[in-house]
Write a protein that binds this DNA or RNA. Structure first.
Length: 296
DNA sequence: CGCGGTCAAGTGGCT
DNA sequence: AGCCACTTGACCGCG
């Protein structure tokens, strides 16, 4: 089991997702910002290694406007060696990496332009992992998309785009994660049947939208969609912010709940991404709890 | 120099 | 009808 957190490190004084306005786009600016983002990413990875956090989600914002038509610059070539060195660092420390394209990536949208933009974004994010030289255990994690009042049709459309429009390089990394209001674990298992994509399991979303399957059972169902080449099951872990709107993530890890989760899933293995607002602080607490239970 | 409106992009649930 | 949340705030014009 590896434990990690997404995108941002709050202990460091840098961010790997600096950007700028479309209106102020220039190649000079793009190059300068990407250079800073990748330098910060390096520092974050070093922090993670020093603290035993071996799972990390790269920010979608590493390369601003990477999938936008305005960006015709060959940043892949310009930063080839930087990406390669980052990848070598990741591999030499046996870290697991994921990326999570944001809510604008919707493969089953009825709007063809939205689908085209979504594919371009997936190609960008996959190319970052490719440039790093990471194997197919480094994943791209998306949701099922919209339902548009007819989920079975929407799922068929997803599968159609998957088979007929996605490049192999994206398909080899793409995973679907259960969300908290439209695509449940069961729905994702159907998408898995239609496409072969592994299912990333989110315990908190499962609590918001599920059929009441016990946690261990749900984890096992998701795990069964992962093959050797995909690596260990990836999971997102979070819990409800007390007193807040349903579905809102907690500010800091609820240690008892995390302990209970690990006890409930005893004997199962997975890599855990802590989707908790205070980032590495909670990931470090989770690491200690997992250690104390002999799960690392 | 700090604040607040706004920023490439979609969807659905809530008020 | 408009706001909010989402894996993550950050930029930039204005006072």
């Amino acid at each position: 089991m590896k434990i990690g957190y997404p995108c941002i490190n709050e202990s460091l004084d840098c961010t790997s997702s600096r950007t700028f306005r479309l209106a102020s786009y220039s190649e000079e600016r793009l190059i300068a910002i990407v250079e800073q983002n990748l330098a910060c990413l390096r520092r974050i990875l070093e922090y993670n290694v020093a603290h035993g956090l071996l799972f990390f989600r790269l920010s979608s914002g590493l390369v601003p406007f990477a999938s936008h038509a305005i960006n015709t610059y060959n940043w892949q070539e310009h930063f080839r060696m930087t990406f390669r060195r980052l990848g070598e660092y990741i591999k030499s420390h046996n870290m697991r990496i994921s990326m999570h394209p944001d809510q604008f990536v919707v493969l089953n949208s009825p709007n063809e332009q939205t689908v085209r933009n979504s594919i371009a974004e997936l190609v960008y994010q996959g190319s970052v992992l490719d440039l790093m030289g990471l194997n197919m255990t480094a994943k791209l994690q998306i949701h099922g998309g919209g339902a548009y009042g007819d989920k079975p049709s929407a799922m068929d459309r997803f599968a159609d785009v998957y088979h007929n429009q996605l490049p192999d390089a994206v398909k080899a990394r793409l995973c679907v994660e259960n969300d908290d209001r439209t695509y449940s674990l069961q729905d994702c298992l159907v998408l898995h049947e239609l496409t072969g994509m592994p299912v990333i399991f989110d315990n908190f979303h499962h609590e918001c939208l599920g059929n009441g399957e016990p946690m261990a059972e749900a984890v096992q169902m998701a795990a069964s969609t992962w093959q050797q080449k995909d690596g260990l099951l990836m999971m997102d872990y979070s819990s409800q912010a007390p007193g807040e709107r349903r579905g809102k993530h907690v500010q800091q890890i609820e240690e008892q709940l995390f302990h209970d989760f690990l006890t409930d899933t005893e004997g199962l293995d997975m890599d855990l991404m802590l989707e908790i607002k205070d980032k590495e602080a909670s990931a470090l607490k989770a690491l200690e709890i997992a250690k104390s239970l002999g799960r690392l």
